[in-house]
């Protein structure tokens, strides 16, 4: 089926949208599983090397995606340090799995950094009073994360925003292969290069809508939690 004016196959478009959501969704989930506990630990505890870790995370929050892409590319290429190992579970270049790895590296510092700021914003007196009520360190962390839930959602939104819109990393490690690794951002680049600006703009609108709907959902969640 053809979408008419913009001349793009609907099935192909859906495939691209689905892959975009799949890659960024999985990457965001893994980033949240790593970044939220990491941010909580950095915000709530003092340990040797914490300051260095915070600086690394802050630096990671501003990582250019194309540099991440280059790094993952070099690591996973056959002659790279990881690719040379030939481990079967290691993602190969030009696959969605490699794109997910790159996006995890981009999103995790964002999620961790914003989560750290959110938990540090919780009233320190509440932290002490939670402990005085007999909370274990794990229970205390969980309670503070719940108290900082608005900020944690912002952290997830920031992580999502950082990866759904990036093109450099997925282009490098995914290769923009039709029916395999083409996502919305790489498709926009391709159509622009081909001079098909109307299609590129249409894909851009789809990407914006996806980001808008995702953020609307997050905002709704924030509202429910208020």
């Amino acid at each position: 089926m053809n979408t008419g004016d913009i001349g793009y196959d609907l099935a192909a478009l859906l495939e691209v949208i689905l892959l975009s959501m799949q890659v960024s969704g999985i990457a965001l989930l893994i980033s949240a599983l790593i970044g939220i506990p990491l941010g909580a630990v950095m915000g709530l505890t003092r340990f040797w090397g914490r300051r260095l870790l915070v600086v690394i995370v802050y630096t990671g929050m501003g990582l250019p995606p194309v540099v991440v892409g280059l790094f993952v590319y070099l690591m996973l290429s056959r002659s790279g340090p990881l690719g040379a190992l030939n481990w079967p579970w290691l993602p190969a270049l030009f696959t969605p799995a490699a794109m997910i790895v790159a996006q995890i590296i981009i999103a995790t510092p964002l999620v961790a950094g914003f989560t750290m700021a959110a938990v540090m914003g919780v009233n320190p007196e509440l932290r002490q009073q939670i402990e005085a009520l007999g909370a274990t360190p794990f229970q205390r962390t969980l309670t503070i994360l719940t108290e900082a839930r608005m900020g944690v959602i912002v952290a997830i939104v920031a992580g999502f925003g950082g990866i759904i819109s990036e093109v450099g990393a997925v282009m490098l490690v995914g290769g923009n292969i039709d029916h395999k690794t083409r996502v919305l951002t790489t498709a926009i680049v391709l159509e622009t290069r081909k001079g098909d600006f109307s299609l590129a703009i249409a894909l851009g609108v789809v990407l914006l809508m996806l980001a808008f709907i995702s953020n609307l959902f997050m905002m709704q969640l924030q509202g429910d939690l208020q």
């Binding site: 009233n123 007196e125 509440l126 002490q128 009073q129 005085a132 009520l133 007999g134 309670t143 719940t146 108290e147």
Partner: peptide, 13 residues
Amino acid sequence: RQIATVFQRPALL
């Protein structure tokens, strides 16, 4: 857990 404190400025969840 056998000891509980009421603080000057209560902080509630």
